[in-house]
Design a protein around this nucleic acid. Structure first.
Lengths: 214, 214
DNA sequence: TAGATTGTTAATCGATTAACAATC
DNA sequence: TAGATTGTTAATCGATTAACAATC
């Protein structure tokens, strides 16, 4: 497989999700066309993306959903349930803690952390909460692999350094600070919600400006 | 200006944010190099991106932060404060309602909506909350332009249709459903948090697989 | 078999990188 | 002036699209 371009990776993850939904609906076969439609791309791209993983064995008549699901899941390591922690138990962090998208057969929120011990005692949650200074030991003990970062902006870089030390494999950064992956081994993805909104407004603005000039 | 490629748009928005921070720190000038570093890209790209907006008037010795800020802000329509609403007042929606990134000099959360009237009465918030059936009238009355969608997955498409009808200009979709912009006029951006985490884990998995085979 | 749909090679498109003359 | 840094044209790189033979 080797080098999978990031756009391809994103689409494969998206397909994985779509295939699972189709399977739930008891569908057994699908086509590059159908996947393209649901994925918001073209059938060309879907076939090319799947080809990246090595031939599926299928050919003439569409894809077997079960097989394709396993192929993608295996190649991308999506079949194993992962343990995740949340750092920062403010409004956003607390919401992430209980978010259905992180508490299912793919992910398990195994712990929450906050530097404010008071917050840990007052937050009600079925998930165990710990003071931040116990990060390394808890991560090691529970086998936590990934982390959702929801601390205040000014703490982001410090906390990230600690996370890297703790041996976590990847971070999703919900902070407004752009984090760089200091260590090449750790994967960081920045999800700046305000920035997303800024992009939407800019896109609209440009659309309008352009249509005026035409 | 005309056609601005999306990656360029994203970086320009990112620069806007960075420039504001630099300005707050009382810095008056900067260079493509410095911006590149903070943006996580190269100086080439920064200069090219800025060139998309038409010449700045600056040249020889770096950029005037104030001027560049205004140029980007004007071109992308980022200087006007926008009114935003949140649809769905579950845990995530409630967190978005008070999120500092949406309550500042760029954005104002002007309303929250939920179909469950009970939830509206019990949720405590300084932001006015309305039953969902009042969407159109409230959007029109308050001049709301953008919307954050945080409803359960199964309601996503229906609510989106209503939002489009209400005349909203753009939507950020926090749902796990991939929304397509039915109407070309409305801008939709999908932020699927679970999908982001899936991508991070896949990226890590591939990195490991590759280094094993070397 | 005929129709449908894949896998794969080649062509296109667009963004990033390089290079360098122009300018403060 | 000399040094630094831009704006812009050309070259490279990589992803998407097209086309079509291979296959169920």
């Amino acid at each position: 497989m080797n080098q999978v371009p990031v756009p391809t990776l994103q689409r494969l993850c998206s397909m994985f999700q779509i295939l699972r939904t189709l399977k739930e609906q008891l569908q057994t076969h699908t086509s590059s066309q159908e996947l393209a439609l649901q994925c918001g791309t073209t059938a060309f791209t879907i076939r090319k993306d799947i080809a990246t993983l090595g031939v599926t064995g299928n050919s003439g008549q569409g894809y077997d959903i079960e097989k394709l699901l396993n192929l993608i899941g295996d190649s991308l390591g999506l079949l194993k349930r992962k343990k995740v922690c949340v750092i920062g138990l403010g409004r956003l962090g607390s919401a992430l803690l209980m978010h259905p998208g992180f508490n299912n057969d793919e992910f398990e929120i195994a712990a929450g952390f906050d530097s404010n011990v008071n917050k840990i005692e007052t937050t009600k949650s079925s998930i165990p909460l710990y003071p931040f200074y116990q990060l390394s030991s808890v991560v090691a003990r529970l086998g936590i692999e990934y982390s959702l970062l929801a601390v205040p902006a000014q703490a982001a870089q410090d906390v990230t350094d600690k996370l890297v030390e703790s041996g976590v494999k990847g971070i999703i950064n919900f902070t407004s600070v752009l984090l760089k992956s200091v260590n090449k081994q750790i994967v960081i993805r920045n999800v700046d919600m305000a920035s997303e909104l800024r992009i939407v407004t800019a896109q609209f603005h440009i659309n309008v400006t352009n249509s005026l000039h035409k």
